[in-house]
Design a protein around this nucleic acid. Structure first.
Lengths: 195, 195
DNA sequence: GTCTTTTTTTAGTTACCGATACATAAGCAT
DNA sequence: ATGCTTATGTATCGGTAACTAAAAAAAGAC
C-alpha cells in the first residue's frame, strides 16, 4: 500500500534520461543540474529516490546492462562457440556506432580516470567489464567440454583477447569510427579462431 | 639574453610532474591545486608559463609522446612488417603495465568523455590516437610495396585492427590487467597476420 | 644606485559543484 | 475534517573549481 504523496515522475523514464546524460558525459562529467533538468525533476526528488549521484549512476548502469547488454547473452546463446563470438563482435561493432545514443560502451567511456572521490565508480565499472569477460570465458569452457573447441585451445586467453578487442572498439567508436570500419575489425579479429 | 627575474623552476621537470598527475587522474580529474602542488609552483607561475590548464595539458602531451611514444617508431623501424607489429604489440603490453607510472595509455585514459568545456582536449587526444594508426598503416603500405606483405593484404584494415587491440589493451591495463595477460593478448592478436 | 622587465607570493575573485533545509502539496487512515 | 506520511518546489548550503589583481622580489641595463 502506498503512503504519503505519490511520486510525480516515472523512475524508469527518469533513469533513461539520466543514462543518456551519463553516456554522453561520463560519470564525473555529468553534473547534477544537467541530470535533473534532463530527468525533469528537482534535486530533492533525485536524492529522495536514488540517494546521491553515485546511487543514481548505479541504477542507470543496471538499466544500461538490461537494455543494451542483452545482445551479449543472445550472442553467447548461439549453437557453436565460433558463431557466438562472431555475433558478439559483429553486434559490438554495430551497436557501439548506433545512432540514437552516444557511441562506445558506457562501461568503458563513463570512467577510465578521474578524481579520488569517484574511484568506487571506476572499480564498479571495471568489475562489470570483467564480468563480461567471464561470461565469454564460461561459454568457451563449455564449448571445449563439448568438443566445440580443440583441446589445445585456451578459453581464458581467448576470452581475454575477445574482450580486449571489444574494449578497443569502444575507444574507436567513441572517437568517431564507423560501424563499417569496426565490422572489418571484428572480421579480422575472428581469424585468431583456433581451427 | 634573459631579461627580468629568472624563472625559479625548470619547465621540463614541472611538465613531468604535471604529466604524472594527468596520467593518474585524466584531464578533467586533475585539479589545478593538485597540479601546482605536484609541480612545486603557485598558480600564477603556471598561468604565466603555460597559459591555462589546457595549454599545460598539451605541453604535457608533447612530452608524453616524446618520452613514452618513442617505442612506436622504434618498433616500426624493424626490418619486416610482421616483426614491427609484433614488437609494437609486445611493447604495448609491457609498457602499459609498467610500474613506475600509471597503467594504460594516456591518450586513451585521459579523456574519453567529459563536459563540453573539454571537448577540444578530447578531440586532440582522438587526433593523436589516429596519428598513431596512420603511422602503422604507412609502415604496412611500405611493406606491401616491398613485397613484405601479400598482395591481397589490406594495410588500412590491418592497421585499424592493430590500433584497436592496442586501445583495448589500454583499457585492460587501466583496470588492472597484468603484463603477462596482455602479452598473451598480443600473441593471439598476431595470429591474424596474413601469410 | 636606480630603472625596467619579468617572476614570485599572497590573497583573493567568480562560478559551479554535489547536496539540503524548509515550507508546502498531495495522497491515505481514522 | 484532521493527522500522518511522503514528495515537491524554492532557495540555498559549504566546498572547491579555474583563474587573477596587486604588490614584493630578483635579475640585467645604464
Amino acid at each position: 500500500m502506498a503512503m504519503g504523496r505519490p511520486r510525480a515522475f516515472d523512475v524508469d523514464e527518469a533513469l533513461d534520461k539520466a543514462l543518456t546524460v551519463f553516456w554522453r558525459k561520463g560519470y564525473e562529467g555529468a553534473s547534477l543540474s544537467e541530470l535533473t533538468s534532463a530527468m525533469g525533476i528537482n534535486p530533492p526528488s533525485l536524492y529522495a529516490a536514488f540517494g546521491n549521484k553515485e546511487g543514481l549512476f548505479r541504477r542507470a548502469l543496471d538499466r544500461y546492462e538490461a537494455q543494451q547488454g542483452c545482445y551479449i547473452e543472445e550472442a553467447l546463446a548461439a549453437p557453436t562457440a565460433r558463431e557466438a563470438v562472431e555475433r558478439l563482435l559483429c553486434q559490438s561493432a554495430s551497436r557501439q556506432c548506433d545512432e540514437g545514443h552516444p557511441h562506445g560502451c558506457l562501461l568503458v567511456t563513463a570512467g577510465l580516470s578521474g578524481g579520488e572521490e569517484s574511484s568506487a565508480i571506476r572499480e564498479e565499472l571495471a568489475e562489470r567489464r570483467k564480468a563480461g569477460e567471464i561470461d565469454i570465458r564460461k561459454r568457451l569452457e563449455r564449448a571445449k567440454k563439448e568438443g566445440d573447441l580443440p583441446k589445445q585451445a585456451n578459453p581464458a586467453a581467448l576470452a581475454r583477447y575477445i574482450s580486449t578487442v571489444m574494449r578497443g572498439m569502444s575507444v574507436q567508436a567513441a572517437s568517431g569510427a564507423t560501424a563499417k570500419e569496426l565490422k572489418q575489425v571484428a572480421e579480422m579479429a575472428m581469424k585468431v579462431w583456433p581451427e
